[in-house]
Simulated assay, not measured.
Amino acid sequence: MRAIIRKLRPAHGTPRTVSAGTVTLRARGVSVSRGGRPILDDVDVEVVAGQILALVGPNGAGKSTLLAALSGELETGSGTVELDGRPLTHWSPVDMARRRAVLPQNHTVGFPFTVREVVTMGRAPWARTVREDGDAEAIAAAMSATDVTHLAERPFPSLSGGERARAALARVLAQDTETLLLDEPTAALDLGHQEQVLGLAADRARAGTAVVVVLHDLGLAAAYADRVAVLDLGRLAETGTPREVLTTEILTRVYRHPVEVIDHPATGAQLVLPVRR
């Protein structure tokens, strides 16, 4: 398959090329504890350019904790996380912000910034670099893609939960990094916007971006992920393609509830359904 190439222009002005299949983030033996209780236990995972990696699992499985460890926002108790082949400790905060963008679960802003101002914050890592010239175009494209252009002058705190989620995603897209880390980006969204957000993630992956997304909806993981990491009680239970790991046996065991995985009779798409009484 022809490799997807994505050219980026970092601060020093020399184009950097990331090809599909390149590992942009890697966790090796990562463990995290809180209050003496293990949250992650010896997790290995690779984030690959040109692919969407979905992190799934029951509540408390460690999905968001793993994402925070990968982003550098949470210190690991043991193990290492590498960004572009070097430990996170090698990079300054600005260097990391030019290489990976993070969408957290909670979208809060302490001051009544407008939506446009919030999205503009995503361009901060590129201030005083050659890429600053593309700020206006990147901001406009991100707002259009997330359907928040009409909200541009609205104060961020006045938005609904779904509108905030889309504006926060626009900020991350405007940042324009080679790796995207998205923590439950569809949680507050209606059906149409859920599909829109995962479609945007898929578009970025096809363009060569490495995408990690925490999802509760296993149907979305089956439809959009290239690889799925199933977490259970802080450990990596399974990893592979959706067809390999989103199976009746594995999901029933991990979620401790009967799950049925079938193919759609018309499209053949993989459907994941809880068994209901």
Rank of each mutant, 00 (worst) to 15 (best):
V30M: 00
P185I: 08
F113W: 08
L218W: 01
Q194N: 06
G50F: 05
D183R: 04
R37D: 13
G208H: 07
F111I: 08
L231T: 02
V23R: 04
E178C: 14
D232N: 14
V48R: 04
R276M: 11
L236N: 02
A168R: 01
A3V: 15
R98C: 04
A11Y: 07
S31Y: 13
R171A: 05
L273S: 11
G219N: 15
T146I: 06
R164K: 09
T149D: 15
A54V: 00
V261W: 01
E117T: 02
T247S: 10
G21F: 10
E117S: 03
L25G: 02
A138E: 07
A167N: 04
A222L: 01
T17G: 10
S78P: 03
E238V: 03
Y224I: 04
H257Y: 15
G29W: 08
V43E: 10
L231P: 00
T65C: 09
R116C: 08
A141G: 12
A201H: 01
A221H: 05
L74K: 11
T179V: 14
R116T: 15
L218D: 01
W91I: 05
Q194L: 10
V30R: 04
V172H: 02
V94L: 14
L151C: 06
L169R: 00
L8Y: 15
F156E: 09
V259K: 00
L8M: 11
A237T: 01
G208M: 08
V23H: 03
E163I: 05
T14L: 06
L88M: 00
E73S: 11
G50N: 05
M143N: 08
V109P: 00
V43Y: 01
A142Q: 07
P265C: 12
L66K: 00
H193S: 07
V214H: 11
S78D: 10
A20S: 14
E249D: 14
D176G: 01
L169E: 01
L70Q: 04
T17K: 11
